[in-house]
Every structure is written in structure tokens, then in C-alpha cells.
């Protein structure tokens, strides 16, 4: 399915530079950013935050049958990354062999093409992760 242009555009700060937010009241960090802090509700005060991109693998799987637009990437690891600031996010792991991709492995963010809408459509850029040697 082709994602709409407004939706892709809105995600640019999140995908390009890992911009989420943090609640100044309870210090909880959110990625993707929240509109309201679920813990503090009306008492919460959310401010923008750029995450470092450092984190560790919380869980992972290996994808052999990819969705449209990712045919050339397969096979690849898809992981839930726990960022050092707290939030957990889903991301592709690149250039890290099976031996290195383990729960708890340290990763860092890299900037890659996330997918392409065919040869004439938009290129979606954003974060992926790489295991640190």
C-alpha cells in the first residue's frame, strides 16, 4: 500500500532525526511523539526531544518475505529497539550478521532508505539500526 504524502511528510522529523517528545512533569520520553502524556494527562507538559539513536535490541525476528518496496532488502532483521532514553521502537537492522543480532546487543541509528514507491514515486528515508561491533 502506498502511504499518503501528508502522512510521510508529517513523519519527516521523527524518521529523519528521531524527534519524539518528553513530558517535563514525569520525565517520560515518547517516540513517536504523543499529543498528551498518558501518565499525567492535563498536568503533563510535552516538549520536543531528539533521541541519540543509541539503544539495544529488545526483541527481533528475521524477515524472508518482505512487503512491497523492500524486496531487495530481504532477508533482513526487524527488531524492537529500546532507545537509551527509554522508548521502544520498531526498526530494521542493517549490515549485522546473524551472530551479532542478539537480544541486548548495542545498536546505533543509521540513515537509510526505508522504502520506495516504485520507480516514479517518493523515496521514504529514515532510521534503521546497526549493531555496534
Amino acid at each position: 500500500m502506498v502511504e499518503g504524502i501528508p502522512s510521510i511528510w508529517r513523519k519527516i522529523p521523527n524518521r529523519y532525526r528521531l524527534e519524539g517528545n518528553v513530558c517535563e512533569t514525569c520525565e517520560t520520553a515518547y517516540f513517536p511523539p504523543r499529543v498528551v502524556c498518558p501518565k499525567c494527562r492535563r498536568k503533563g507538559k510535552l516538549v520536543k526531544k531528539r533521541f541519540s539513536g543509541n539503544g539495544k535490541i529488545y526483541s527481533f525476528t528475521k524477515v524472508y518475505t518482505p512487503p512491497t518496496g523492500l524486496e531487495l532488502d530481504a532477508p533482513y532483521h526487524l527488531a524492537i529497539i529500546e532507545l537509551s532514553e527509554g522508548p521502544k521502537i520498531l526498526g530494521q537492522i542493517v549490515e549485522s550478521d546473524d551472530k551479532k543480532v542478539k537480544i541486548g546487543a548495542q545498536v546505533k541509528m543509521v540513515f537509510r532508505k526505508m522504502k520506495e514507491d516504485g520507480n516514479a514515486g517518493l523515496i521514504h528515508y529514515g532510521y534503521k539500526f546497526k549493531v555496534i561491533d
Binding site: 531487495l72 532488502d73 543509521v110 540513515f111 537509510r112 532508505k113 526505508m114 523515496i123 528515508y125 534503521k128
Partner: peptide, 16 residues
């Protein structure tokens, strides 16, 4: 380059 790399992604990594 890897399949998910292009001149934009390389430029971003160098700039970072």
C-alpha cells in the same frame, strides 16, 4: 552501496 543507500543517505552520514 547497500540496497538501501543512495547519495542522500551517504551525504547525511558524512554530515553527521
Amino acid at each position: 552501496p547497500n540496497v538501501d543507500e543512495d547519495a542522500s543517505t551517504l551525504a547525511v552520514e558524512a554530515a553527521r
